[in-house]
Amino acid sequence: MGSSSGQSSGSYDLSFKILLIGDSGVGKSSLLVSFISSSVEDLAPTIGVDFKIKQLTVGGKRLKLTIWDTAGQERFRTLTSSYYRNAQGIILVYDVTRRETFTNLSDVWTKEVDLYSTNQDCVKMLVGNKVDKDSERDVTREEGMALAEEHGWTFLECSAKTRENVVQCFEELALKIMKVPSLLEEGSTAVKRNILKQKPEHLPASSGGCCS
């Protein structure tokens, strides 16, 4: 289920775990696939959890992002709660054309984060997806900004379909994480731990990176 993209040779400076959460159908998987592979195909609903790995260079550092894509439906929440552990970044996604997905962030998702996130300094980002459907817009940009400000989150609007602002979402989140000393330290520890574990003969041949 999980797949990696870009270099998998382990040559990176920092490793971060990022989590995508939000209601079913807001486009979490599409956002991830749009970021990883630039494709914008229709995707089947996520069942349980999926993850993808992407390497990119941000602020002069080579990063390995492990991005966990969770199912939005309530049934899967008890199963997905463990994925919050040790996440350095959480992206809260809503659909700008469906107001309930926006109100559920306050009513449901922030509570989930408070309950399960083990990392106090974890960086949160609010993302309003599907801005390509401007005529159907149900949540204004200002409302998004206000909610983000209230919670101290970073805010962006994007479209997984047109790829507008998609890369920026992840890059901006990574930059924010890198500015938090405790998270930066965790990111480097993860790399050290990983290098120690890797035996030379198991290192796969390095392939061309796709984003750096």
């Binding site: 289920m1 999980g2 089947a44 349980g48 959890v49 993850f51 199963l79």
Partner: peptide
């Protein structure tokens, strides 16, 4: 242990959906 990829990360879907995805 090495990758800590638990069965629920990769097999949850296999089992609940009878391999249909």
């Amino acid at each position: 242990f090495t990758t800590q990829v638990k069965p629920q990360f990769y097999a949850f879907r296999w089992i609940t959906l009878l391999l249909s995805q």
